[in-house]
Amino acid sequence: MAAYPVAIGTLKEEETIGAETKLRQSKYLNNVIEQAHRNIKRIVKPMMGFKTFNTARRTLSGIEVMNMIRKGQVKGVKPGDKMSRVKFIEAIFEIAA
């Protein structure tokens, strides 16, 4: 792990990143990211890949948005409230259920 501080120093010298940028080393940080994407992995695995980059980008974006709606990370949608989710999706796509 000694290469990380050298790399950060080089990036700061080249002004690729700001001088005020701090290095946070945490061996558990990746676990949070992996747990957040566990649901996506579970959904995508049976699809056996995508044919084009744009198909992958659109599909993964849709999955991410639906997870955000489910978690209540969207303004006006309460976590765990199915009716507010349904109303939000109806409003976006202008559909009536």
Rank of each mutant, 00 (worst) to 15 (best):
Y4V: 03
Y4M: 06
P5F: 02
V6L: 05
V6D: 09
V6T: 10
V6F: 12
V6A: 13
V6C: 04
A7G: 06
A7C: 09
I8L: 08
G9M: 11
G9S: 10
L11M: 15
L11G: 06
K12G: 01
K12Q: 00
K12M: 04
K12W: 07
K12R: 07
K12N: 03
K12V: 00
E13D: 12
E13N: 05
E14F: 04
E14N: 01
E15Y: 11
E15N: 12
E15V: 01
I17C: 03
I17Y: 07
I17T: 02
G18Y: 07
G18D: 13
G18E: 06
G18H: 04
G18V: 03
G18K: 09
G18S: 13
E20F: 06
T21G: 04
T21I: 05
K22S: 09
L23I: 00
L23V: 01
R24F: 07
S26G: 08
S26H: 14
S26Y: 09
S26A: 12
K27G: 10
Y28W: 04
Y28F: 13
N30I: 05
N31G: 13
N31T: 12
N31S: 07
V32N: 03
V32W: 07
E34T: 05
E34F: 14
E34Y: 15
Q35P: 03
A36P: 01
A36F: 15
A36R: 12
H37A: 15
R38P: 00
I40L: 09
I40S: 14
K41L: 03
K41Y: 00
K41C: 00
K41W: 01
R42E: 00
R42K: 13
R42I: 02
R42M: 00
R42D: 00
I43M: 08
I43G: 06
V44G: 09
V44E: 14
V44W: 08
K45P: 05
K45F: 05
K45N: 12
P46L: 09
M47V: 05
M47A: 14
M47I: 05
M48A: 06
G49P: 05
F50C: 07
F50D: 05
K51E: 11
K51W: 10
T52H: 15
T52M: 01
T52W: 08
T52I: 03
F53E: 12
F53K: 14
N54S: 06
N54T: 02
T55M: 01
T55I: 02
T55Y: 04
T55L: 06
A56E: 04
R57M: 03
R57D: 10
R58W: 12
T59Y: 04
T59I: 08
T59E: 02
L60V: 03
L60M: 14
L60A: 03
L60C: 01
L60N: 01
S61W: 04
S61K: 11
S61E: 10
I63G: 00
I63A: 01
I63Y: 00
I63S: 01
E64G: 05
E64H: 09
V65P: 04
V65Q: 11
M66K: 08
M68E: 10
M68P: 02
I69K: 15
I69F: 08
R70Y: 13
R70G: 14
R70V: 12
R70P: 10
K71H: 13
G72T: 10
Q73S: 10
Q73E: 12
Q73V: 08
Q73Y: 12
V74M: 09
V74W: 04
G76L: 11
G76A: 14
V77T: 14
V77F: 04
V77K: 09
V77Q: 05
V77I: 03
V77H: 11
